[in-house]
Design a protein around this nucleic acid. Structure first.
Length: 494
RNA sequence: GGGUUGGUAGCUCAAUGGUAGAGCAGUACCCUUUUAAGGUAUUGGUUCUGGGUUCGAGUCCCAGCCAACCCA
């Protein structure tokens, strides 16, 4: 705990001290500044809905503006969904109420009862007949007009960001709508939502560095999952034909504009389907979500602070489908005709740093990431991906050097992979062993055992929900769609 | 991990190496339909931290901390 700011000889301390004096004044008036339940007509939005001249309503919210005109006082009561103006008439209210009103600050939670009326400037308002202090705010809120600009404050004290910045509120409201709608969409199609372990003895389903933890009673180490995949497939073995999980996974890797150590992923599996069917469902889902958020003509517009359109994503169906090879040839003609040395010098010409790509397929993948993925704004399903990149998918019958998957690229980043899942237990074991190399202990042999009981052929998808929300809301950073992104600890104190 | 930029009042931002300022918030007063209310007055500073250069540092140099962006 930090020391109380009012004990410090600081400007902030003085502001807090003044508010504490008001707190005491309220108590001296016989008012509990942290009142209990308050019966309301509803939220601000609800009250606006039922608003009718002369109607008696009751509303609670935070004071976000205070306009004192002498005998007349107007204040704004806000909640996450909007604001409502409240009017205090200095001549009609009793002395006790006015004395309480004199101790109010921006930031306080207040409950009011009164009649609806419209001011002559046309503002729907509530003429207060009774008020109740619900929570006295002891610290000053951010600037009412500029909000919180400092990114560090916005992330560390997200509540201040949400209080002060309407666009941030809207982003997180939309995120919530998206998650809810995905569940509804899948439920409508017969998918069953399940919950599988986030603590796993062997973290499988992806290639990523896991977080490690320890269970005392069992006396064993666990890892936070990097993907739910291997458990969801066990449920296919169990006989569930359609399952999904929409929840957190964890990867102990770098933090960037597009990476948070914990992130939200949808994984869905559909028995007897394949990656093509999954791609159509994902196309439908994302278009549906965009439409729900009000995008017109399948155009998603990203805007800057002034509201100018900075990017338009065209979601018109059908979405482009092209093979990994085609897309790379398109970006770098003649690429696949080059030998390893040729590829290396071509990368140098293209100013691509491939110092971390010893293998040829890694150079190719780097070219793909830089010259295809990052430049693909409108949706594109990339198919026929090299098998080295995707060890858990079914090999393509016609070209066994590739797998039956799609990688959906939108907005310059991978949004969703979709597979025809590999259900041959022997081949799966071989591919996992090859992937694990020296580290055979990293193979989830119990998963392989499950496969040996028989897993139906299936289509599977993953969707990175954070990135999906970025694309739908125009957020530039993953931190703008995660309520509490991880940052380093603050040095000390404030 | 490397590079670039930034960190000044509660918030948003200024300030050629030469007295640290403004708007909002706060405080006091005026004002009965305002709404970024308005008017008058006014309080408020460890300029991120620690060193250094200098007659003099928010400003220049070094180191560190935190953040954003780019690269890996």
């Amino acid at each position: 705990m930090e020391s109380s700011p009012q004990t410090q000889h600081s400007p902030l301390g003085e502001l807090v001290a003044i508010r504490r004096q008001k707190l005491k004044a309220l108590r001296d008036l016989g008012v509990d500044p942290y009142g209990g339940a308050f019966d309301t007509t509803g939220t601000v939005a609800d009250v606006r809905e039922v608003f009718a001249e002369g109607k008696f309503v009751s509303l609670a919210g935070r004071i976000t503006a205070y306009r004192d005109m002498g005998k007349s006082r107007f204040l704004d009561l806000s909640d996450i969904g909007g604001r409502m103006q409240v009017y205090l008439n200095g001549k009609e209210l009793d002395e006790a109420t006015l004395a309480v009103a004199a101790q109010l600050d921006i930031g306080d939670f207040l409950g009011v009862e009164g009649e609806c009326f419209t001011t002559r400037t046309g503002e729907p308002s509530i003429k207060v007949s009774r008020l109740a202090v619900l929570s006295k705010s002891l610290r000053p809120l951010p600037d009412k007009w500029h909000g919180v600009q400092d990114s560090e404050t916005r992330y560390r004290q997200r509540y201040l960001d949400l209080i002060a910045n309407a666009p941030s509120r809207e982003t997180f409201r939309q995120r919530s709508l998206v998650v809810r709608e995905i569940r509804r969409f899948l439920d409508e199609r017969g998918f069953l939502e399940v919950e599988t372990p986030m603590m796993q003895a062997i973290p499988g389903g992806a290639a990523a560095e896991p977080f490690k933890t320890h269970h005392n009673a069992l006396g064993m180490d666990f890892y936070l999952r990097i993907a739910p995949e291997l458990y969801l497939k066990r449920l296919l073995v169990a006989g569930f034909p359609k399952v999904f999980e929409l929840n957190r996974s964890f990867r102990n890797e770098g933090i960037s504009r597009r990476h948070n150590p914990e992130f939200t992923m949808l994984e869905a599996y559909w028995a007897y389907a394949d990656f093509r069917l999954m791609s159509v469902m994902v196309e439908e889902l994302i278009c549906h979500l965009a439409a729900m958020l009000g995008c017109e003509d399948h155009q998603v517009h990203h805007r800057d602070m002034e509201g100018n359109v900075t990017r338009t994503i065209n979601l018109s169906r059908p979405w482009k489908r092209a093979s990994y090879r085609e897309l790379i040839e398109e970006a770098v003609p003649g690429w696949f005709a080059l030998d390893a040395e040729g590829k290396r010098s071509r990368c140098a010409e293209l100013k691509l740093d491939i110092s971390h790509c010893p293998e040829e397929f890694e150079m190719t993948q780097h070219v793909f990431e830089k010259l295809v993925e990052e430049k693909t704004i409108d949706p594109c399903f990339v198919t026929h991906v090299p098998k080295e990149l995707v060890p858990l998918a079914r090999l393509n019958d016609a070209d066994p050097s590739t797998v039956d998957v799609y990688e959906l690229i939108i907005n310059g980043q991978e949004i969703s992979p979709g597979y025809s899942e590999l259900n041959d237990p022997d081949l799966q074991r071989e591919r996992l062993e090859h992937q694990a190399g020296e580290e055979q202990q990293k193979i989830d042999t119990e998963f392989l055992e499950a496969l040996e009981y028989g897993m139906p052929p299936a289509g599977g998808i993953g969707i990175g929900i954070d990135r999906l929300v970025m694309l739908l809301t125009g957020a530039e950073s993953i931190r703008d769609v995660i309520l509490f992104p991880h940052l380093k600890n603050r040095p000390t104190g404030e």
